[in-house]
Simulated scan of single mutants.
Amino acid sequence: MGLKIEQGRIAGGVWEGVLTGAATAPGIEVLHEGRAVEGVEVHAVTGTAGSCTVRVPIPAWALNDGVQSFLVQSDGVTLAQFTLVAGQAPDQDLRAELNLLRAELDLLKRAFQRHVREG
């Protein structure tokens, strides 16, 4: 069974999800526009084998007008994503999806460039 994040929610400026399928607490990285978010916490859930809570404090530098997408990853694999919308309401939810696709394309581009450099 692979890693999977369920029950993602935002409360009090922190995104929280439940990670399942982990024998131990894996390394989790959260990216916003290619920049790593600091302060990510992963803790095993007591009494529930293979489950961990993932807590991501939403940094002030990421709160801007428009659509902001965050990618939750482990070993380069995107496990979840969350999106914030601030300022004027977007014309459609399509903008949020487009922003997420751009973030994932940027991630793929960097991985491809790293692959080419390494030979």
Rank of each mutant, 00 (worst) to 15 (best):
R95A: 11
E118C: 08
Q68K: 12
L101C: 10
F70C: 05
A36S: 12
A62T: 12
A80W: 06
V45L: 10
V42L: 09
G27S: 12
G27D: 15
L84D: 02
T24D: 11
G47C: 05
S74I: 04
H43N: 13
P57E: 04
D75E: 15
F112G: 04
Q73H: 05
E16R: 15
I58A: 01
I28P: 01
H32G: 00
I28E: 03
K4H: 11
C52P: 05
I10S: 07
R114E: 13
A80E: 14
V54G: 02
L3S: 03
S74V: 03
F112D: 10
S69M: 01
E29V: 15
W15R: 00
T46A: 14
G39P: 01
A86F: 08
A103H: 08
S69L: 01
L101R: 15
I5L: 10
A60C: 08
T20F: 01
L19F: 06
A25F: 03
H115F: 11
G21R: 05
V18S: 11
V30I: 04
A60T: 13
R110T: 12
Q81A: 12
P90S: 04
A22Q: 06
A96L: 04
G2D: 15
A49W: 05
F70A: 04
Q68G: 01
F112V: 14
V30Q: 00
L100I: 04
P26I: 07
P59G: 07
H32L: 04
T48H: 10
A49D: 10
R110M: 10
E104M: 09
Q92E: 10
V116A: 09
T78G: 07
A103K: 01
T78I: 12
A25G: 02
F70M: 06
V67C: 08
F112M: 12
G13V: 02
I5G: 02
D75R: 10
H115N: 10
W61Y: 09
E6D: 15
W15K: 05
G76C: 06
L79Y: 02
A111E: 14
A11T: 13
D65A: 12
D91Y: 04
V14R: 11
R35S: 10
R117N: 12
G12F: 01
F112S: 13
Q7I: 04
V56I: 15
D106H: 12
G27Y: 03
N64Y: 02
V14I: 15
V67M: 06
A49P: 00
R117L: 13
P57S: 06
L108M: 14
D91R: 11
A62L: 03
R55Y: 03
E38N: 09
L94A: 13
G12R: 07
D65P: 00
S69H: 07
A23N: 15
R110K: 13
A44W: 01
C52T: 06
L84Q: 09
H43I: 11
A62C: 09
G34L: 02
Q92W: 08
L105S: 11
G13D: 07
G76M: 06
V72D: 00
V56K: 02
Q92H: 14
A23I: 12
L31G: 03
E29D: 15
T24E: 14
T20G: 09
L63V: 14
A23S: 14
E33N: 14
V77L: 12
L101K: 09
G39T: 06
H43E: 14
L79F: 01
W61I: 05
G119C: 00
A80H: 13
P57M: 03
Q81C: 10
S69C: 15
V14H: 06
W15N: 02
C52M: 04
L63H: 07
G27I: 02
D91T: 08
V40C: 07
